[in-house]
């Protein structure tokens, strides 16, 4: 059996997936990206190899992706996270899709045709609005851990609108809402709605809508709000935080198989 590895070193977390020659996941691991990408890539690999009871030589080919993609000395090749998220998402649905990926530092809209070929993509502009960093800032402003935002927002009973393009200005808007006596759960939901607006401004949607990324994995409310906005179900692949790493592993499988 041959194995292939994909590693996605994002701004916040590093994810690794090992697949076998059928594309089935054999192991995965996740670490905080930290500041030593090379070191964390190695830790990720060692952890996944141990979990699958594999040796490094069992991995025929590796592809790295994400911000730290060029800091993985043992990978055979690097590809962008746009290619890898698209690949990983399409593998699960195999029809024309538009992928909305929301990560810690960026959001992406990726269009794939019914053959899985990318036809276009957009990344957010320089601003953090519409990304995980935005939620972290809002959580800080509300004196909450970011992990509690989703649960709180689900209890919301009233629409609170946060309208600014800018994360810093949104934080100021929140101060005004607090002063006006708005409930924290309503403000939290307003923050999720703000992400939906920022992402929907980036591009249009063709085919089915698929969502991936760490922010999607941890905030199911965001998925339902996106679906509500577009009037359709937002599909989520299994383990959406790993979609980029999984896509990288699928590329490794294609490329590695060709070289064997």
């Amino acid at each position: 059996m041959q194995y292939f590895c994909g590693i996605d070193i994002g701004a916040s977390t590093a994810k690794l997936v090992i697949v076998d020659e059928n594309g089935d996941v054999a192991a995965r691991s996740m670490q905080r990206s930290g500041v030593d990408y090379t070191g964390v890539a190695r830790e990720n690999l060692d952890e996944a190899l141990a979990a699958a009871d594999l040796a490094e030589d069992d991995v025929s080919y590796s592809v790295s992706t994400g911000y730290g993609r060029d800091n993985v000395p043992w990978s055979d090749e690097s590809m962008t996270e746009i290619a890898c998220h698209g690949k990983g998402a399409w593998f699960n649905f195999r029809r024309q899709i538009t992928v909305i990926d929301i990560g810690a530092q960026d959001s992406k809209v990726i269009h794939l045709d019914d053959k899985g070929r990318r036809t276009s993509f957009k990344m957010n502009r320089k601003c953090a609005a519409g990304t995980g960093s935005f939620l972290e800032e809002i959580a800080l402003r509300l004196a909450l851990p970011a992990s509690e935002l989703n649960g709180l927002a689900e209890q919301s009973t009233k629409d609170v609108t946060l309208g600014s393009f800018c994360t810093v200005f949104t934080a100021t808007e929140i101060l005004a809402k607090i002063r006006a006596g708005e409930k924290v759960e309503d403000i939290a939901k307003g923050a999720f709605r703000s992400i939906v607006k920022r992402v929907s401004e980036m591009d249009t949607i063709d085919g089915e809508l698929v969502m991936t990324g760490g922010v999607v994995a941890h905030n199911p409310l965001l998925v339902s709000l996106v679906g509500e906005f577009y009037g359709r179900t937002a599909l989520v692949p299994p383990d959406p935080q790993y979609t980029g790493a999984f896509g990288a592993a699928l590329f490794a499988m294609e490329k590695g198989a060709k070289t064997c």
Binding site: I82, R118, F121, K126
Partner: peptide, 15 residues
């Protein structure tokens, strides 16, 4: 943004 631009260009050529 260095990183955004680099990734965008690389992804475009991949496409």
């Amino acid at each position: 943004s260095e990183e955004q631009t680099r990734t965008n260009i690389e992804a475009f050529v991949e496409q």
